[in-house]
């Protein structure tokens, strides 16, 4: 077993461990932290596949932004876990059925491909995965890429317009009006003679 394989198994083992902990651990904040750990270990695996851009983006987007907001929500909610666990035995058969279906489907999709391709060649240190990804994304796949961007913008605008509401009773500051104030609007200098003794 080479060093690289050793690193792979360390990351893969940690990934499976953390993934299992996400769904079994009792404390929701701990579960969120284990999810962060799964993101990190899968980023490590992607780095080994020479996909450094995807790996770092995974950490940047999911760990740096999505999970922070997630943690934010989990901490604010005082989740009572007892009612969540009540139906466990009742739903177990259905759960096992869904899990089996998923495994069979993944087997059908991945199975025939497994080992059918030669091991991809290692690139030299000059190889730049980011540049390769960029050039293919902006040439071959430019229309799907633009389409995805448009969908994202629509989603952003929709999300903002859903939360946008006027609250008439709340006092607001108007920074433009504050900046636009001039001295003569507010201040009057009064000249007075000094009092005589």
């Amino acid at each position: 077993m080479g060093f690289e394989q050793f690193v792979f198994y360390v990351f893969a083992g940690l990934l499976l461990f953390a993934g299992a902990m996400v769904i079994t651990v009792r404390n929701p904040v701990h579960a969120a932290m284990f999810l962060v750990m799964t993101f990190f270990t899968s980023a490590g695996l992607w780095l080994m596949l020479e996909a450094e851009f995807l790996a770092i983006t995974l950490v940047l987007v999911y760990v740096g932004a999505v999970m922070v907001l997630f943690l934010f929500v989990v901490m604010m909610l005082d989740i009572n876990l007892v009612p969540l666990r009540e139906g466990f035995m009742r739903y177990l058969p259905v759960g096992i059925l869904v899990a089996l279906a998923m495994i069979i489907m993944m087997g059908l999709v991945v199975g025939p491909e497994f080992g059918a391709h030669p091991v991809p060649e290692r690139h030299g240190p000059d190889y730049n995965n980011t540049a390769e990804l960029g050039s293919i994304l902006y040439t071959v796949y430019v229309y799907p890429f633009e389409l995805a961007a448009v969908i994202l913008v629509v989603a952003i605008i929709a999300a903002i317009s859903l939360t946008l509401r006027r609250r008439p009773l709340v006092k607001h500051q108007d920074p433009d009006a504050q900046i636009a104030i001039r001295k003569q609007d507010r201040l009057r200098i009064v000249k007075m003679d000094s009092e005589k003794k």
Binding site: V36, E52, L60, G64, L71, T130
Partner: peptide
Amino acid sequence: DVNAALLYVLALTSFAVY
């Protein structure tokens, strides 16, 4: 001398908030 050095720095600084 990492190709994606800037992204790496950004990812790590964003992790500090945890």
